[in-house]
Design a protein around this nucleic acid. Structure first.
Length: 566
RNA sequence: GGGCCGGUAGCUCAGUCCGGCAGAGCGUCUGGCUUUUAACCAGACGGUCGCGUGUUCAAAUCGCGCCCGGCCCGCCA
């Protein structure tokens, strides 16, 4: 942290690494990087890591895997990709921290298809009886997976697939049961005095009786906190425990009072030790984490790593949380959105772009204003292909990041502006959509087939967006049935004359003009006359620019509808 | 109480590391597209850079003190 020269070369490595701030993405002597992941990669390389380099993330499979979880995935992914570009072999490991106990009942769950399900629709009683037990020991409420933990781990894996991030999903329970964590667990217990000493700097509750191991009660299956004895002299090593009450959030999970023994595979390390233990066992070189860990888990974690486990902690990076529509993600409050839902609204590349932005800034993911995010992405893409001018910084960022967002940069791609795509979504006729897009100049004449397909795929997404948000683009051509209406005679006569005009065959702008003219001739208020049109075609008071729209819908239908014959 | 991150146009954000004319997109307004009707084009408007203070020829940028929002000091993306 200090620039002062160090006299003792012996201490240099210690000084350099001690108190590593998880916030600073680069040091003073680093060259400036357009993309934060490059700055992180510089620091990972500075460790001179062994191949393969390991990038880790992890979450508790506690419930609906929402967009917040994708943050953890994507932040690691960019660093992994940058390191791969530099010729390194990189593993992106993701732990499902599935030996963690269920602390409270989620109000909302979801099945493997991503359908949200209220807690009341599953066997809530069975879940309630399992409060305090590891996720992997709780039956899957949907009955489709081996356990509650497996169910939601599967969904995490699906999320990673959906954004095309290759991860190795590692079950924490599996690490304990297979014995992979046994040596480090034993080491912590052998050195529990030192462990206590280190952790007591961070947690007041750590006293002389503290034992850094939480056995699973063989009687009731819950994670317990009261270890009464440790015996490392037998094989396998065991701890003796008494199943006591455990604090879990605002409530207490009752212990059953059972006294028994457990092996080191039949329990877990407390989080403050478990995290560094994962670093050691998995050989982690870089780990991003939410800001919640920045001031608690991370300072104690790196201390435990160096002074208990005697390993160098990974390069850290804090990312800010983001909100959904201005509110925190919350499965209990129903403020969640799954990755699969998001991908029905925007292309994967756009979602990936969202997570490429500065991790230090809190952001809002707004479905309402999703068009803004898409516009931003389109701009980045256009800058990448030198189609528009931008300043130095923005250009550098675009050039660096864009190739990481798409499978393959292809200059011939075609993007319809998102809100325009939403307008096209008012009709479900694919040919009509393409025709209007071409007429408006959004599709070049020589655009290849795949590019046109890609452009029109956005129409479906924008249509889904308009429907979901019920916004100003949520109009639907009412083809099958004529909407209820009530016009005065003058309006009816004007509509009849407009029908004749259109039947005779005129262009989009001519029709637009004729709407005004007809209204005037029959002394109908222009606004009301447009309103009548929107009523007939959309069952709404407002809509898209009417002339061009009607000109493109098949003429017979338009004429009949204006005459209110169908 | 102590610590950390953020605060830039109505909105979403770049720019802060490295001090050098305050920027982009959207929105708004005006005009154009044959005549108010949400797509397209042009232009304009829009800012005490959270507040104060120090350093400097020069501060959004560096220092210090505050304010506001969030987070941590139990568990937890």
């Amino acid at each position: 942290m200090s620039d002062e020269p160090t006299a003792d070369t012996d201490r240099e490595s210690v000084d350099e690494s001690a108190d590593a701030s998880p916030y600073t993405l680069q040091r003073d002597d680093d060259e400036h990087r357009a993309f934060w992941a490059d700055a992180v990669a510089d620091r990972v390389e500075a460790r001179d890591p062994e191949e393969p380099i390991v990038v880790k993330g992890g979450i508790s499979p506690s419930g609906v895997p929402h967009l917040g979880n994708v943050n953890e995935l994507m932040r690691g992914y960019y660093v992994a990709e940058v390191l791969r570009e530099r010729g390194h072999d990189v593993r992106q490991v993701f732990t499902a921290d599935d030996r963690d106990p269920l602390r409270k009942l989620p109000r909302t769950l979801c099945d493997l298809e991503g359908e949200l399900v209220d807690l009341g629709e599953v066997d809530a009683g069975a879940l309630g009886r399992n409060l305090g037990a590891p996720y992997t020991d709780i039956p899957d409420p949907f009955g489709c997976c081996d356990s509650y933990g497996d169910h939601f781990s599967t969904l995490i894996a699906d999320s990673a697939d959906a954004v095309d991030v290759p991860i190795e999903l590692v079950s924490n329970t599996e690490l304990y049961e297979s014995g992979e964590l046994e040596d480090v667990t034993r080491f912590v217990l052998e050195n529990r005095d030192r462990a206590r000493e280190v952790l007591s700097e961070y947690q007041d509750k750590v006293d002389a009786s503290y034992v850094p191991f939480n056995p699973i009660c063989e009687e009731c299956g819950k994670i317990t906190e009261t270890v009464t004895d440790v015996d490392l002299g037998v094989e396998p090593a065991t701890v003796a425990y008494r199943c006591t009450d455990m604090d879990a959030g605002d409530r207490t999970v009752d212990g059953c009072g059972h006294e028994g023994t457990a092996t080191l595979r039949e329990g877990k390390l407390p989080w403050r030790f478990e995290w560094p233990a994962q670093w050691k066992v998995l050989g982690v070189d870089f780990e991003p984490f939410g800001k919640d860990h920045a001031e608690g888990s991370w300072p104690s974690g790196q201390d435990v790593a160096r002074n208990v486990l005697e390993i160098e902690p990974p390069v850290p990076m804090v990312y800010e949380w983001f909100t959904l529509e201005g509110e925190p993600f919350s499965s209990s409050a129903g403020n969640v959105i799954l990755v699969t839902d998001v991908l029905e609204l925007i292309e994967p590349a756009v979602l990936r772009y969202f997570f490429a932005k500065d991790p230090a800034k809190a952001r809002d993911f707004s479905i309402e204003r999703l068009d803004q995010l898409v516009d931003e992405f389109d701009r980045l893409e256009a800058i990448y292909f030198d189609e528009i001018e931008a300043d130095e910084d923005e250009t550098a960022f675009a050039k660096r990041v864009y190739p990481l967002l798409v499978d393959e940069p292809r200059a011939e791609r075609v993007r319809l502006p998102y809100t325009f795509a939403a307008v096209l979504g008012m009709t479900d006729d694919p040919a009509l959509r393409e025709e209007i897009a071409r007429r408006e100049g959004h599709v070049p004449d020589d655009a290849p087939e795949w590019a046109v397909e890609g452009a029109l795929a956005r129409v479906e997404r924008a249509r889904t967006w308009a429907r979901r948000t019920e916004n100003e683009f949520d109009y639907e051509l009412k083809r099958t049935e004529i909407p209820d209406h009530d016009f005065d005679p003058a309006t009816e006569a004007a509509l009849a004359e407009l029908a004749e005009f259109i039947e005779a065959g005129h262009g989009p702008e001519e029709i637009q003009g004729e709407i005004y003219e007809t209204a005037k001739r029959y002394d109908v208020d222009v606004g009301e006359f447009f309103g009548a049109g929107y009523r007939l075609f959309f069952d709404e008071k407002q809509g898209p620019k009417l002339g061009p729209f009607l000109a493109k819908v098949d003429r017979e239908f338009v004429v009949d509808r204006l005459r209110r014959e169908r």
